[in-house]
Nucleic acid binder design. Structure first.
Lengths: 178, 178
DNA sequence: CGAATGTTTCAGATAATCGTGAAACCACCC
DNA sequence: GGGTGGTTTCACGATTATCTGAAACATTCG
């Protein structure tokens, strides 16, 4: 296999990750940049990334900053070189958990709040003397409770993920459903 | 609490779900429509949804069809009424698993494929007589393997989710991390 | 059949998102 | 200070996603 073909498989992987990440609501280029850093044996400069992925300077700069905000890419300092170098966070779980938590926890907490509020609002209707009103309250109560359960489970899952990520030296832990 | 306030909390919940769903890459209105159906004590017509959420006829029709394609909303027949009525799928796990599997499995399989391809491509370089080439191959091999693990785990998780959803009469099962 | 009512489709309007590249900015060196 | 990279910012244009509303279509009923 030639050098050229090797390079080709690298590009394949980066683009694939780009698409995959896009699916989860990030920009494709975020995935591509992360992936190329992840596969690079040494830190890369913005310029190298720009060339490898054929992006504009602006796009690279913004993408790198964004990735840094999510904590999945780090700036490293190479003594004697004025340029910034970048590496990828390689502990995948740590990354996933951080992204998840940042991304969802606010919304999940909001769900929990609103659901609880709605629940207590419904309680008053459980004693209404309008039959239909009561029925409706009972049903909505049950459904909102189910949502609350899901939200709580999500929160719990996040918590667990975060906790294991903290302890875990290993990159992968095992998830089991029963 | 007044009727008006009750209604208000309903709207809060629907809009919240809208935003939450948006986060996971669906249209906000899909979440809103599903949520209002989920909280409605009885099936609703397209028109009722249109009024409740202030959408155009086209938007409602398209959103409902889309939700039906994902299997999270069902058309129901109300004898003696010409209009179509709609209800929400209420088994949340069933829903989640179905959506997940449809959405991801293709991409996950693609990840597995490409990673495996890249791995075998790298194998040739492990015996290269260029030291740097060899080093690089070793590192990339390890990293791609980690990705492969994640992809496999994802696939496994999906499988488990699907399996439990099939058996499960209960709406919620328990997830545990160790 | 044809009027009445409900539903779907689709072309165009509108809005949100993304990438570009040049200009501004910054840090370092001479 | 002025020059030399390197980096960030941002107004703009391109692209894409989304919504609208009216026309086409379907179904029921008199």
């Amino acid at each position: 296999m030639s050098e050229r073909e090797l390079w080709r498989s690298e590009v394949l992987v980066t683009d694939l990750i780009g698409r995959l990440i896009e699916f989860w609501g990030f920009k494709r280029n975020m995935g591509r940049v992360w992936a190329i850093l992840y596969l690079s044996p040494r830190p890369m400069t913005a310029q190298a990334i720009r060339e490898a992925l054929k992006l504009s300077t602006g796009a690279v700069s913004m993408t790198l900053n964004e990735l840094a905000r999510w904590g999945v890419v780090k700036k490293v300092w190479v003594p004697g070189d004025r340029r910034d170098y970048f590496t990828a966070e390689t502990q995948i779980w740590k990354m996933v958990s951080r992204v998840m938590s940042e991304r969802e926890s606010g919304e999940i907490l909001a769900v929990i709040d609103v659901c609880e509020e709605a629940l207590s609002a419904l309680d008053d209707h459980l004693e209404s003397n309008d039959v239909e009103d009561r029925e409706r309250a009972v049903l909505q109560r049950a459904r909102i409770k189910a949502l609350l359960d899901v939200a709580r489970l999500g929160k719990q899952l996040l918590g667990a993920l975060l906790a294991t990520a903290k302890v875990d030296a290993e990159p992968l832990s095992r998830i089991e459903l029963r």
